[in-house]
Design a protein around this nucleic acid. Structure first.
Ligand SMILES: NC(=O)c1ccc[n+]([C@@H]2O[C@H](COP(=O)([O-])OP(=O)(O)OC[C@H]3O[C@@H](n4cnc5c(N)ncnc54)[C@H](O)[C@@H]3O)[C@@H](O)[C@H]2O)c1
Ligand SMILES: NC(=O)c1ccc[n+]([C@@H]2O[C@H](COP(=O)([O-])OP(=O)(O)OC[C@H]3O[C@@H](n4cnc5c(N)ncnc54)[C@H](O)[C@@H]3O)[C@@H](O)[C@H]2O)c1
Lengths: 210, 210
DNA sequence: CATTTTTTGTTAATCAAATCACATTTACAT
DNA sequence: ATGTAAATGTGATTTGATTAACAAAAAATG
């Protein structure tokens, strides 16, 4: 947004959701202030990494005192736009998609799957956890009507490129896929992967090597 | 394992599962050889990054030719131990756990969830996709009996530390959690997180900033 | 068989992130 | 008030990863 944003390191941004969640938990538990060293112990980061991260978002702390938790939540929440509902679409209402729908980010009041899509006539027309399941073609109109900001795909690998091509045509710019198939999209479209198999393989490999 | 392993960069190891999967797909499609530039186009990496990664595992390519796909699969498969079945345990057979159980890494013949655990008496004693659901205490014996190499946790955040403490007591050293609650474990235990909320928040943030 | 082209493997250069070290600021106790 | 202790914010440094550049090796060509 502001020009300085371009200079915030990727890794600092990546940690923002973790900071935000942790601070909310601390606030819920009744804490009012925190120092970088304490927070570091909780989320397993060096205090100095935290202080540098925070410094990109302003002079948020006070020497000899630490950080005001409510203030940090305010700042980080604004960046993450937690006060605006972020509508999401889910593509692929199979076993995994259904689990996501039933949970539907209940711990995150601003994230909400507002519509789901599939090809299977047996599931199209149904409703799960108040979310209607439609044909993918319906997404084009829903995008504006339902204020959809991003898409989560739980379609199988072999269908992913085809689905993503459709999404791009409709104007979707943010996609998170549970199938790790690498897809081709224009520069302006962001795709992330949640690659369970790679995670497990790396986990086991790490244990093996140590 | 071998002393040189200590020197392989973390990021190169992280990419190994992706290399392995992609090469298997290419082999299935009938390809026999590949050059770093082609592979880079497929998985969106610079050719030079791929060549450097591969070089850590030996002199795998031939100048003016490229890499023999079968040979790469052999080498990487050995490192990832794809020829030994890696038994996994699942803790928390809720909606998400059930989806994982039904899928059970069917695309990865050597990864297999061999046992599942929960606290809910309503699900304990049941069988899903041939996998029995038991009480967590049963895991201790199963660890050796069923050759369990790692654990996937789909228990809620509030139960995670308690469950992990049990796992550590039983001797588990590799844990993948779908709940992002940071847990405290001894140095020798590896914990990874699959943090869906952070992924979505970062995805939307990235779009917003660009 | 000699020449040209291709592609690797690696050294050197660049870029990005994490950490160190410390001057500065503020809280708090006396 | 003043002095001490505590904690931040940030230049400087280190560490780690990526990319560039190119010499050496092998394949392809005529
Ligand atoms: N379930 C898991 O444990 C798991 C783990 C990791 C990754 N994944 C990935 O997620 C994907 C989905 O997993 P799942 O267990 O839910 O599979 P699933 O087969 O139960 O569900 C897939 C759903 O996608 C729908 N679909 C297929 N093609 C489509 C298209 N072109 N457009 C819209 N919908 C389409 C199907 O109708 C089905 O409902 C898997 O293929 C895998 O790549 C799953
Ligand atoms: N479903 C999702 O969309 C989703 C997405 C991201 C993360 N997660 C994480 O995964 C967790 C599970 O999700 P879900 O939708 O399957 O929830 P769920 O409530 O359907 O399932 C949780 C299961 O864990 C079991 N459990 C609770 N305490 C336990 C304990 N101490 N030992 C063993 N088992 C225990 C419960 O009996 C239940 O079967 C969530 O809490 C969340 O942290 C879920």
């Amino acid at each position: 947004m502001t020009p300085q944003n371009k200079k915030i390191p990727r890794m600092s941004l990546e940690r923002l959701p973790i900071y935000y969640r942790t601070l909310c938990n601390l606030a819920d538990a009744g804490y009012l202030r925190i120092k970088s060293a304490q927070l570091g112990r909780i989320i397993h980061l060096e205090a100095t990494t935290i202080r540098r991260d925070f410094s990109y978002f302003g002079d948020l702390g006070k020497s000899g005192y630490g950080y005001d938790i409510a203030h940090l939540i305010e700042i980080f929440g604004t960046i993450l736009e937690v006060n605006h509902t972020q509508g999401l679409a889910l593509i692929g209402v199979g076993n995994l998609g259904r689990a996501l729908l039933i949970n539907n980010f209940r711990r995150n009041p601003n994230l909400e799957i507002v519509a789901a899509y599939d090809v299977d006539p047996a599931v199209i027309g149904g409703i799960i956890n108040e979310v209607p399941i439609q044909a993918l073609a319906d997404l084009e109109d829903d995008l504006k009507a339902k204020q959809i900001k991003g898409v989560i795909s739980t379609v199988p690998s072999h269908a992913l490129q085809e689905v993503v091509d459709q999404l791009v045509m409709f104007g979707v710019t943010s996609i998170l896929s549970f199938a790790p198939e690498p897809v081709h999209v224009p520069e302006s479209v962001h795709v992330r992967y949640l690659d369970l198999t790679s995670e497990v393989q790396n986990l086991l490999l790490l244990a093996e090597l140590s």
